[in-house]
Design a protein around this nucleic acid. Sequence first.
DNA 1: CCTTGAAATTGATCTGCATCAATACAGGCC
DNA 2: GGCCTGTATTGATGCAGATCAATTTCAAGG
Lengths: 229, 229
Amino acid sequence: MLDSCENCAHFEDSEWSVLGGCNAKGLDCARRSRHFLPGEPVYHEGDEPSGIYCVSSGLIGIRKVDAEGDSMLLRLVRPGQTFGYRSALTGAPHGVSAEALKDARVCHIPAATVRKALAEEPGLLMAFFRHLADDMAAAEVKVMETVSASCRVRFLRLLMALGGGEDAGLLELPVSRQDIASLIGVRSETMSRVIRGIEDEGLAHFSGRRVEIPDPHRLAEESVGALAA
Amino acid sequence: MLDSCENCAHFEDSEWSVLGGCNAKGLDCARRSRHFLPGEPVYHEGDEPSGIYCVSSGLIGIRKVDAEGDSMLLRLVRPGQTFGYRSALTGAPHGVSAEALKDARVCHIPAATVRKALAEEPGLLMAFFRHLADDMAAAEVKVMETVSASCRVRFLRLLMALGGGEDAGLLELPVSRQDIASLIGVRSETMSRVIRGIEDEGLAHFSGRRVEIPDPHRLAEESVGALAA
DNA sequence: CCTTGAAATTGATCTGCATCAATACAGGCC
DNA sequence: GGCCTGTATTGATGCAGATCAATTTCAAGG
């Protein structure tokens, strides 16, 4: 089986790596892989959980809609990462929705299998706890940024985060500009203006989804604060 | 022992309740109770974790400071609730700070005891996972609200949350107005104006920290949206 | 090539909240 | 009482970003 969990390119980084080989085999038998088209929902807010999801390729977006009906993109889930585990483990209905942002292949591990794995390998729950702790830390930073930083700074920081440590001054925006806007909590018009401003200053060059950053170091400095004159 | 964990008024609601009586005794021996003055820190951002904290009386605030130096109150921890468990369980340094907001008595359960309890009772980790899941859900709502709702609406919702289901139209603000402002992410001047506005409309009556709400139902309606003309 | 519809840009205007700067109003203490 | 230090209120002004409305760009299909 070429595309088994154990052979998955991201297996070592995922929570499942705490499972010994034998349990990982159980995972592999039970999982069902499925393709999603861009925009297609994986689950909705309020749905009952049915298991844990794992992205094998493409990109998933976690979204939340508020009482007034406007939605916001809370975070992105990349290949190798799990999602939906929170509800799967607590049993509570999903508090957020998940949807494909580009063509994606997603594995689904049914709740029963998850329960079995949890019972056999106590370390697994701790692995998910760590994941949740990281997500929580990110959420806290997001709250802080949203209230204190300008949308320009928030966008620059997002750029750096997307750069992902690679200081090759070239990166690709994973999603549409509307979604980028939604990710930092601004209107798309504002997004355009911010991008234009950055372009004009020569801080970065945008064409389509390609972003070229001539001087990553300067960008880093600007993103530190609104201190810039 | 009058004030043991098992006799704690909040024991049943806390994560510790999953421990059988024998393990709870271990808790009780190891814990150290300590008093904190208002404003006194329990731990700082970046500190290494040393165990789990449990509020027995008073009020604790969870705060975060960003790069620019301005801080924000993220959430409140009430008697019977635990805090600091995230770092204690993952081993990572605290990502937020905790401080007493009023005279408080806080129990500290050392890391070694926590480890022992976790090993003996697998359900304990799940209890903390649930707690974290709840905190995460609250954080997600907070992000949404911060970007989409006006500060007026955010404050009205906070009032409702503080009312805590009790529709007795009388409640007490747990903290100073500065802290309330920090909790919803606005300046204290704006807070004053918002309160004045609400007062003028007769939606609620404020005197010191006492808040009287003549018509809770009307307040609930207003807090639903900025739809109000 | 033309059509169609969605995504992105641009401009004009409006408004909520921050900011700056006084002033009022406490509670503790001599 | 009067004084003093921190908290709360009020006013005047400025600006970031939302909103409304009109194009422009672009990818996909006929």
